[in-house]
Lab assay of single mutants.
Amino acid sequence: MNLTVNGKPSTVDGAESLNVTELLSALKVAQAEYVTVELNGEVLEREAFDATTVKDGDAVEFLY
């Protein structure tokens, strides 16, 4: 899956889609429990991480 992460191209191997929690784990995001996630310009509530799917071509920003 090809994404733009914090403005840079990134690839997650072996996945066509992941939820936000899985993406944080796959990318080994440090202190993931404290990060705010913006997906395609929309800031996500932490409670929505498990239910929100990240797909090929999406833009993700991790805000600390």
Rank of each mutant, 00 (worst) to 15 (best):
M1C: 06
N2V: 12
N2E: 07
N2W: 12
L3K: 00
L3N: 01
L3G: 00
T4F: 10
T4K: 09
T4D: 03
T4A: 05
V5T: 01
N6S: 05
N6V: 02
N6F: 04
G7T: 03
K8Y: 10
K8T: 08
P9W: 12
P9Q: 08
S10C: 15
S10W: 15
T11W: 15
T11D: 04
V12T: 04
D13I: 14
D13N: 13
G14N: 09
G14H: 09
G14R: 08
G14Q: 07
G14M: 09
E16Y: 14
E16I: 14
S17E: 09
S17D: 06
S17H: 10
L18Q: 03
N19W: 04
N19Y: 06
N19G: 03
N19M: 06
V20S: 02
V20M: 10
E22K: 09
E22W: 06
E22A: 11
L24H: 00
L24T: 00
S25I: 15
S25T: 12
A26W: 15
L27F: 07
L27K: 00
K28Q: 09
K28G: 13
V29H: 04
A30Q: 11
A30M: 11
Q31L: 13
Q31V: 08
A32P: 13
V35N: 03
V35Y: 07
V37L: 06
E38C: 15
L39Q: 01
L39N: 00
N40T: 02
E42F: 12
E42Q: 13
E42H: 13
V43C: 09
E45S: 13
E45A: 13
R46A: 06
E47L: 08
A48K: 12
A48V: 10
F49P: 01
F49E: 00
F49Y: 12
F49N: 00
D50P: 07
D50L: 08
D50N: 10
A51Y: 15
T52P: 01
T52G: 01
T53V: 13
T53M: 14
V54L: 10
K55F: 09
K55V: 09
D56C: 06
D56G: 07
G57N: 05
G57R: 04
A59E: 12
A59I: 15
V60M: 05
V60K: 00
E61H: 12
E61A: 11
F62M: 06
L63A: 11
L63S: 14
L63G: 12
Y64E: 07
Y64I: 09
Y64H: 09
